[in-house]
Structures are given as C-alpha cells and as structure tokens.
Design a protein around this nucleic acid. Structure first.
Length: 756
DNA sequence: GGGGGCTATGGGGGG
DNA sequence: CATAGCCCCC
C-alpha cells in the first residue's frame, strides 16, 4: 500500500479513521445521526483510490442521487478528477445503466422503457378491467404493493401461486385473482419492453444469476470494492444482488456496509433490518465500527433523540453523545388550527433569522405528508421568505411534461404501450376509447405490443385512417431520431405532434405556465446534448433520446437545479434523511398524522414512525421546534387530533418551559392522553384526568369484550360494558366521568382491559 | 363512436 | 381536494 502524504485522515476521530483504513474484507459501520458517516464513506473511497485501486473498481450504492453526487464531489476534493469514474449512484440508476448494456441477455431491448409508478398503476388498472374484476375489491394500490413486495422478495408469479401464505392472504382479502393480475402484469411489461422500479433490481438479479460464467464474472471482477450506504433501508432483493457480486470462491469479500438501524424508515417498500443480521452471518469475519459521537447537534437535541428512540424495543445497542454545548432547549408550538400553525412557524422563522442571524438555507420545515406543505407556503410567501418544496410532484410527472415524454418514449421504444395509450389521442385526433380497447385486446390476445397491432395486423376500426396518420407520424419521429440529436428530435416532436399549438391556445396563466414548462423541458434536453457528464459505463458522446430518457426517469424532485440558493427548505421527513440544518421545524405532531393513522394498529409500524421522528429531530444542529395543531383540514373536512405521543416521550428538561403553552388548559377542554399504551419512560407532560398506571395495564383483545363486563380504560378508568353492537362499537359507562359517563367506543381502536 | 360535463370515491412515505 | 368513471349529447 502506498504511503499517503497529506492527511485527510487527521480530520477523523479514531473510530472513523479505523473504519476508513480497514480497506480489505467485510466491514460494517453502524453510524448514529451526525456521526460523520458521509465523511467516513467518502474518505474511505478516497483512501482506496490513493492506495492504488482504480476508481471504476469501486461500486458505491446510495439511496438518493443527491447523496451520490455529494459523495463524488467530496471524493474529488481529495483525489482529483478520478472521482467521476467511481460507480457511485443509487441502486436503481446504476443497475439501469448496466441493464442498458446487458438487456439483450434477458430478452429485453437495450432501449427498454422505465415505467414509473403512474405507468404501473395504469397498467394494473387496465388488467383489472380486462378481467372484469371489481375495482373496489381489487384496489389498484393494494395490488401494486403486493406485486412490488413479491418482486422485492424474489417471488415470481409461479412461486406466488404455490405460496400458501400469500394465496390465503389474498383469499382472506377477497382478492384471490391477485396472482393472475401479477402474471399478466409481468407479461405486459415484457411485451412493452418495460421495466418498473422493482424490475431494475429484479432484472439485475436475473442477469447476474442466469449468466454466471460471463456477465456475473465480469461484474464480480470489476467491482472489487463494494460500499452500501443506508444499508438499513435495503430490501431482500438488493442484498441478494450484493451477495451475487461479492461472494464467489476467490473473492476478498470487500464489502463495506454503512447504516443505522434506528434510522430505518422504508419498510413500506420492503426494506428489512434483518439484512444487518444476515450480513453478520454471511460475512462472519467482518469488522464492526460504531460511530456514536454526534458532531451535528447540541446536547438537548441529542438527549431528546436518545429519549425518544429508547421507546423502541429492538435495536442495536448504542448511545449517541455530543460534546457540543448544551444549546437551546426544544421549543413546542401549540396552535388551534393548521393555518395558525403555518403562521406561527413563519413568525418563528422571522424571529430566528433576526435573533440568531440565520440564513434561509439553514432552516427547514419537515412534515409527515407532502399535503401539509400548503399552509407553510402561504405564510412564507406572505412574509416574502423564499422557500423551496421538495417532493410531491416532480417536474417530470407534470401532465404536459409527461405527455411530451411519452411521445419521446414511443419514439425510442415503440412497444411502450403505456406511452402509446397516453398520447395516441392527445392532441385529439379522433381515436377514442372503443377503438383503443379493441386494439389493446387484440394485442394481449396475440401477445404483441399495441404498436405491432397498429402497424402489422388487420383490425376493424372506423378510425383506421387517423391511426394510419398517427403511426406515420411516429415513424417520422423515429427517422428523425436516427439523424438528429436528442434536442432537435424533441423540438420536432413537440411541433409536429401538435402539442405546443394546443398548449399555446390556452392563454390562461396556467396554460402559459404549461408552455413554459415544455420549453424548460426542451432547454434541459439542449443542456443534456451540450454538456458532457462523465459517468462510468456510459459513452461520453451518447446524446441519444434513449440516453436522455434514462437520465431523467430516475430523477426525483430533489435532483432538479434551482435558481438562487438561499431558500427555506420544505420537505417530508423521509426525504430529509441524510440532511442537516441549523434550525429545524417538525410540524403536525399529532396522533393520526405523525404517527400516521395508517400505522396506529401495529406496534411495529408505530416503532417505524418513531424512527422517522428520530430522523426528523436529529436533522437539527442548534434549534429544534416542534409544532402541533388542535384542528386541521384533512380529507376536505375539519378534524381534531390529539398531540402526538412522541411529544410526551421527550422529558421536560429538554423542552423550553416558556414556549410550552401546551400545558395551559385548551379552550376545547382537557387534552386527551395520547392513545395507546406506553412503556415506563419519561413522564408525560400533561397527565390525563384519571390516570391508570400504564405499567400495570394490559389490553385485552377486542373480540373478547362482551356485554356486562367490567373493564379498565387507560384514560376513562373503570367502566361497565352496557352493550356491544354488530360493528364492534361498545357502549360503556365510566363511573368516574361526571359529565358524560356513557361513552361509545370502537373496540377495534380502544385499549381496554377486562377486569371481570 | 367520440367528446364534454358531472358524480363518486379515495386520500402515506419514494426509487 | 383531485382524479376516474359514467352518462348524455353530438
């Protein structure tokens, strides 16, 4: 190993340095929030390069493009321009790049289309309809998530049918035909030469698995050093791919995983912490490093984070600590309405900017759901504070953009049925649903793409003439794509298809904005053509439309360039992972919202919500403000939510007493205790009127509660069940409640203990 | 057979 | 509150 002169190694503490220099063999780095994880990852890669490893031999898998980009920039600072030859990127984008070269091994065209979630859902909807199934029972989202998790667990449609657990679950949910939909969906994707997001992983696995002697060996040999960031958020399939690449007879097992089980927040898309345990048994010779010193946040924030996460049962033992100052205590803002929450947060931002001399970009507002952004936007705009919203609809998901993109998609891959369906009659050219359905049926029956029907088969349709014009137009686009670059082709498409004229006809401000958006898309294609971005595995002079499509199809909203750089950040707690701000506002801390109502029924999901809250509060360096509103508009009407149970999990010593007006009596009466049973821990900030010791309480199953029983309720105390109706709603008389002793309680949600 | 307007329904996080 | 499906008219 070659001696390294100047030392970036001096910028590391001892544990970090050990993790950076342990280049050979399997390594696991457990990294608490703010513990310098990114620094370790980048310096490790830099150290590899300085030690003579070629950049293209390094595979660094991240979860966001942004993380990959930052990593590359930081590596470049240490090692120079070689950094851009490192294979650093998201699982999805790097695998897409490899698949574009190797797709023929799988029977896919190299210019395969990537179906986004909307495409998948639309395809599933079409299949459900074609099978004449009830779409209320066969809920598209439910089916999609079923298909997605099957793929993530390497369960093919064939395996699915023989899996009794899956099949009986579907029968129980009155969706016994799910496996047929899955099978048809896979077939339709193959016909269309399309891969969905899960396929980018699944097909990568298949590629390596089915071609052990050539393709697999090639990539095993190439990727001598593998690094995986945010390992706690990998799913089964991702880990299987890593193993295919790293485990073979003469392998050095140079795999380094970095993660934090306490920050695992993506189980809904198949991530499993089991992978960490699995890693330990698959690579028994591994070295483990625990980064526990937090350099990011002041002490009250770190202490609060530790308190909160201690409520979770299963976790790898570690305690983050900080030797920074005590810092400010955590502020809590309680408001009557969501609108007032928006105003108060905006007020606090103004105040903090003045008092602490904060720049806008040092401030973030984090929420559980993207729909919450609106009130904050309104008030920030009113105060003229620049802000930027991440997440929600990305530029490429906007209708007018997607329309243009679908023309491009069909031009690149004429088998792309979803693109064809979207644009065949947009702008209107007299090809209606009936015609389209006829063609779709013909395509499925003959197992060919719709384009094949249009161009090669006999079909009866009144719209035959218009269809002929349409196919001729697309063929013209294909010809242009052969001779012109991506920008010129796209420009031609936008004009010739009639899209731009149609949009220009709408002179409303929204219509004007749509024209601007299409022009912005054209500009970005021009930029793509003019600028060489050096990426491993891609020819520098590949300026094709196909390459452009690939470069954008995995982009998220966070990846877009923006003008100026001093804005307040608004984003979901999920997308905030990995980021840090001097001041953070975590808003909407209410039961049913954070934790989400979708998670309330399962302790595991509550734990995940808690990890999400942990991620949120550990983004703050110096100032942390938590807010909740008494009432808010949800689903179109006013809803009342109790303060989040997570607020009660932070002890008073870390909360700023002055701003803690939550303790004052609310005009709506005494705030209710946060639902659910909690383990012993920090004392709740507000005691319910009648408090039953949570430690002694043990909830009984809802179905066991019957008329005449004496029961115990956490908040209402002792009661007698008067009756239970068929919808499992019980009427219970609580003697300790003076004003309205008889309460109707949904047994499904209430926690009651049977006394006798 | 195609287009426009109205009603009903569902509604989380993201690559 | 947004979108999908349905109904009615051309």
């Amino acid at each position: 190993m070659q001696e390294v002169g100047y030392s970036y190694l001096d910028e590391l503490n001892e544990i970090q340095r050990n993790a950076v220099t342990a280049l050979e063999g399997p390594v696991m780095v457990i990294a608490g929030p703010g513990s310098g994880k990114t620094r370790v990852l980048t310096y490790r890669i830099a150290h590899l390069i300085k030690s003579g490893v070629a950049p293209w031999q390094i595979l660094a898998l991240t979860f966001t493009n942004k993380a990959a980009r930052e990593m590359k920039e930081r590596i470049e600072k240490v090692v120079g321009s070689g950094a851009n030859k490192v294979w650093a990127g998201t699982f999805h984008s790097l695998f897409a790049r490899i698949l574009r070269v190797e797709a023929h091994h799988l029977g896919y065209p190299n210019d395969f289309t990537i179906y986004d979630t909307d495409d998948s859902k639309s395809l599933i909807g079409t299949i459900i309809k074609s099978m004449s199934l009830d779409k209320k029972v066969y809920n598209i989202n439910a089916i999609r998530s079923r298909i997605s998790s099957s793929k993530s667990n390497l369960i093919t449609p064939k395996n699915y049918v023989t899996n009794e657990d899956l099949m009986s679950y579907d029968r129980m949910n009155r969706r016994p035909m799910t496996h047929v939909i899955y099978e048809k969906y896979v077939k339709a994707c193959e016909r269309a030469g399309a891969m969905d997001f899960d396929d980018l992983l699944l097909q990568m696995f298949r590629l390596l698995y089915q071609n052990p002697n050539d393709v697999r060996k090639k990539y095993q040999y190439q990727f001598q050093y593998i690094m995986v960031d945010e390992f706690q958020d990998t799913n089964y399939l991702q880990y299987e791919i890593i193993k295919l690449l790293a485990i073979y007879p003469e392998s050095n097992h140079n795999v380094c995983i970095v993660g934090d089980d306490a920050q695992s927040i993506y189980s809904f898309r198949g991530a499993t912490i089991e992978n960490i345990l699995q890693f330990e048994s698959d690579f028994p010779e591994l070295q483990t490093f625990k980064l526990e010193q937090n350099y990011r946040s002041t002490n009250h924030i770190v202490a609060a984070a530790n308190e909160v996460i201690s409520y979770n049962k299963r976790q790898i033992q570690k305690k983050i600590w900080s030797d920074r100052t005590e810092g400010q205590k955590i502020k809590i803002i309680k408001t009557m309405t969501d609108n007032e929450e928006g105003r108060r947060v905006a007020d606090s931002i103004i105040e903090q900017k003045n008092r602490y001399n904060l720049a806008n970009h040092e401030i973030a507002i984090l929420y559980r759901t993207n729909a919450q952004s609106r009130v904050f936007e309104e008030h920030l705009r009113r105060y003229n504070i620049p802000y930027r919203i991440y997440g929600g609809l990305s530029f490429y998901q906007r209708k007018e953009i997607k329309d243009v993109i679908c023309y491009i998609r069909l031009t690149v891959n004429d088998r792309d049925d979803e693109a064809l369906k979207r644009i065949i009659n947009y702008p209107r050219r007299g090809i209606g649903n009936t015609t389209l359905e006829k063609i779709a049926t013909l395509a499925t029956d003959n197992d060919v793409a719709m384009w094949h029907v249009l161009t090669q088969m006999e079909y009866n349709a009144r719209a035959k003439k218009t269809i002929g014009e349409f196919t001729k137009m697309i063929q013209g686009f294909k010809a242009k794509a052969q001779s012109l670059d991506a920008y010129e082709t796209a420009l031609h498409i936008v004009k010739r298809s009639g899209i731009i004229d149609l949009l220009k006809a709408d002179t409303s401000p929204e219509g004007q904005a749509r024209v601007d958006n299409v022009n912005a898309l054209l500009d970005s294609i021009k930029e793509f053509v003019d600028n060489d971005v050096i990426e491993p595995g891609v020819e520098d002079d590949d300026k094709s439309l196909a390459r452009f499509l690939q470069s954008i199809s995995l982009m998220t909203d966070a990846d877009q360039e923006q003008e100026g750089n001093d804005y307040v950040t608004l984003m979901s707690t999920h997308s905030a992972k990995g980021l840090e701000f001097r001041s953070v506002f975590v808003v909407g801390l209410e039961e049913n919202l954070f934790p989400s109502y979708m998670s309330l029924s399962s302790p595991d999901q509550i734990d995940e919500e808690r990890r999400l809250f942990y991620v949120a509060i550990t983004r703050a360096e110096e100032y942390l403000t938590l807010s909740h509103a008494n009432s808010r508009y949800q689903f179109g009407n006013m809803r009342f939510n109790d303060p989040s149970r997570f607020l009660d999990e932070i002890s008073e010593e870390n909360i700023d007493a002055i701003s803690s007006i939550r303790k004052k009596a609310s005009p709506f009466g005494e705030p209710k205790a946060a639902g659910g049973i909690r383990r012993l821990g920090p004392k709740p900030v507000h005691q319910p009127k009648i408090m039953v010791s949570a430690a002694d309480f043990k909830a009984s199953p809802a179905e066991e509660i019957k008329e005449g029983m004496d029961v115990l309720h956490l908040k209402f105390g002792n009661g007698k069940v008067i009756k239970v109706d068929e919808r499992m709603v019980a009427t219970i008389r609580f003697d300790q409640i003076v004003d309205t002793p008889e309460k109707r309680i949904m047994l499904k949600y209430a926690k009651l203990q049977i006394l006798s």
